[in-house]
């Protein structure tokens, strides 16, 4: 599923002050592509990711997901789009603390018309697949950072999304776990053709991407293409 940004601007207003976060971003991410967005703090990379994930609306410009203009969709249609097509992974994992791993993974499907038993079965299977079969009844506070991120990935995967958006998904975990998480994402990208957009500070993470967008002060500074990187990491 492709993502297209056309001259996207985002201005935050707070207390009468206008802070431009994005100042005209245009890009095209192909279906099944693996890209990273890099840039210093405050460069606007998270803002861009949120716009691509329909979590926010641009001040100016348009975002298209699979050719659909998001500005034409109301809040309900955007919610449905997020539920059906997009999976999010966050730096702080964003798991619901009172729920077990299993319950957290079930959450996205609770609003769908699927029997409870089927949801539970699916959640169990995906948690097993990400290597947490013996952790399903643990609450997030009893899981390591890497394990929590796997729960979050399982939660993103349970809806069978076409796009996964990661906002510094390895920012809070150690190097070893970082690589195992990135290999997992790479596998999902190659085998399931899920479009990956990952915001990161980490050069090693960026190395997994086919293209890296470097952003500074709300504009794309340069684009680096790693044409054969995917082959390097797939073995």
């Amino acid at each position: 599923m492709s993502i297209v940004c056309e001259n996207v601007h985002k201005v935050y207003t707070s207390g009468g002050y206008y802070t431009p976060a994005l100042r005209g971003i245009s890009l095209h991410i192909n279906a099944g592509e693996f890209v990273c967005i890099m840039g210093p703090s405050g460069s606007g990379k998270s803002t861009l990711l949120n716009l691509m994930g329909a979590l926010d609306r641009p001040t100016k410009g348009k975002v298209f997901i699979d050719g659909v203009d998001l500005s034409q969709l109301n809040d309900y249609a955007l919610a449905e789009l997020r539920n059906q097509k997009i999976g999010f992974i966050f730096q702080t994992f964003n798991l619901i603390q009172r729920m077990t791993a299993l319950e957290n993974v079930e959450v996205p499907l609770l609003i769908r018309n699927i029997p409870d038993r089927e949801i539970r079965e699916k959640a169990r299977r995906i948690l097993g697949w990400v290597g947490l079969a013996n952790r399903i009844h643990h609450t997030p506070d009893r899981l390591s950072g890497g394990e929590q991120q796997r729960v979050a990935i399982a939660r993103a995967l349970i809806t069978q999304p076409k796009i996964i958006l990661g906002d510094e998904p390895t920012g809070n975990i150690d190097t070893k776990a970082t690589h195992s998480i990135m290999k997992l994402l790479k596998y999902l990208n190659e085998k399931l053709k899920i479009t990956m957009v990952i915001v990161t500070h980490n050069m090693e993470v960026a190395a997994y991407a086919q293209r890296v967008f470097h952003i500074r002060d709300g504009v794309i500074e340069r684009v680096v293409i790693h044409s054969d990187k995917s082959k390097m990491h797939s073995d």
């Binding site: 809040d75 919610a79 449905e80 789009l81 997020r82 999010f88 619901i96 609003i111």
Partner: peptide, 16 residues
Amino acid sequence: TKEIGILKSLGYSPRD
């Protein structure tokens, strides 16, 4: 608030 944000990111509509 955070939980509401999480639910919304997972596709929960205002009505949900």
